[in-house]
Design a protein around this nucleic acid. Structure first.
Lengths: 209, 209
DNA sequence: TCCAACATGTAAACGGTTACATGATTAC
DNA sequence: GTAATCATGTAACCGTTTACATGTTGGA
């Protein structure tokens, strides 16, 4: 998959491994992330497949750079992939996996996990909204943006904003549920052991899968 | 990660490899998916780590089953993981990766990709809403549900519903944007080549990462 | 002189995916 | 008999992650 992401970036402009590394390192171009240790071998693989070629360029600071660009064959392969049918849009989330066993997590711990996620989601959301602001200012509404190549990135930013808002909403809902439950428990079950599954009640969730 | 998911399931009730395989195969317990080829080796790994143990049970149909259960140490390890700090909630999505290069996809292809995703999202959403319906019917509001062990699954279903709604909303927005752009193009640019990036305008997106 | 940024890599481990392989029991 | 379901595995591959490794140039 990283190979495809690299081809997309090279379709816009020639880049060196180091440039790509910077793109994939921090806030990540389009939510994708990669390590430098993966980028250089991947570029070699793309080169062997004749999807990219490179030329050496002098660098202003540091050793000479190997600048990669798409070959005609590379652009063709990229477009073929982009156009191919897409299946399986499942999203695995460690947070959700953990919350599934919410009853096994000490309540205070669970609440702090959710608060932390909520906080980082809020931050990511405001970063994304800021990015959207500058893109809209620069290019106008995505429907009208004159620069064809900016429509995709604009839509990706919109995607992230909607996804982050949904996650934030869920985290708040979960925290609300847990708070209410704690309040009820402390009132009704003073010192009583936590309620067990009623005998004979089959586990509904077992039959969902 | 699969090991953790297995421990969570075994914390509720003893299960055989075959049971786990069924849970992970189709609609997936809590959005997680796994292949049988992965489950049996993973059970051996958990056994070596003394997190699970097994006993043989006669099966009503077919060969005897090896039924696994958590050890005390396994429950301890599970709770330790559940309580540990959680970082990195990044979500990689092939769909978003493709849309980033929307301008390279033939418009009709892109629209059919998005429509397909929209349709399968709608289906998943109605499945999830149905599941939520039966859970609420059975256990009542998550705040009040008497069965402690069902709160997590209820919250997971809520999560999926919010996430699916957000995705659907985005897909519809994207389709709207593309439709409007197509309409404008066909009116203003009869036969004209598609507009190129204005010379000298640096790519904003490059500087976002 | 030393640190930060530039620039490019290798090796090992881990986890998920695909494909292949085997055999028992029950219902049709 | 034969197909479906029950039940358990192995082997090879591939992509990601972590850790390690090396050397240059410019500025403080």
């Amino acid at each position: 998959m990283l190979g495809r992401a690299i081809l997309e970036l090279l379709a816009r402009e020639p880049l060196s491994g180091y440039d790509l590394k910077k793109r994939f390192a921090s806030s990540l171009a389009f939510g994708w992330h990669a390590y430098d240790s993966q980028i250089y071998p991947e570029l070699k693989r793309l080169e062997r497949a004749e999807l990219v070629s490179w030329t050496t360029e002098e660098s202003s600071a540091g050793p000479p750079r190997r600048v990669y660009r798409l070959t005609a064959h590379g652009l063709e392969a990229l477009i073929a992939w982009l156009s191919s049918p897409l299946e399986d849009v499942r999203q695995k989330s460690e947070l959700v996996l953990r919350v599934w066993a919410a009853d096994l997590i000490p309540p205070a711990r669970l609440e702090s996990l959710l608060s932390t996620v909520g906080e980082s989601t809020r931050e990511a959301l405001s970063r994304m909204e800021h990015i959207r602001g500058s893109l809209l200012e620069r290019y106008g509404q995505p429907e009208l943006a004159a620069d064809e190549s900016q429509v995709g990135p604009l839509l990706c930013v919109e995607h992230d904003i909607l996804a982050l808002r949904a996650r934030l909403e869920w985290v708040q809902q979960a925290l609300r549920v847990l708070t209410v439950r704690r309040a009820i428990h402390s009132r009704t079950a003073k010192g009583k052991p936590s309620p067990k599954r009623p005998a004979g009640s089959s586990n509904v969730v077992s039959s969902l899968g």
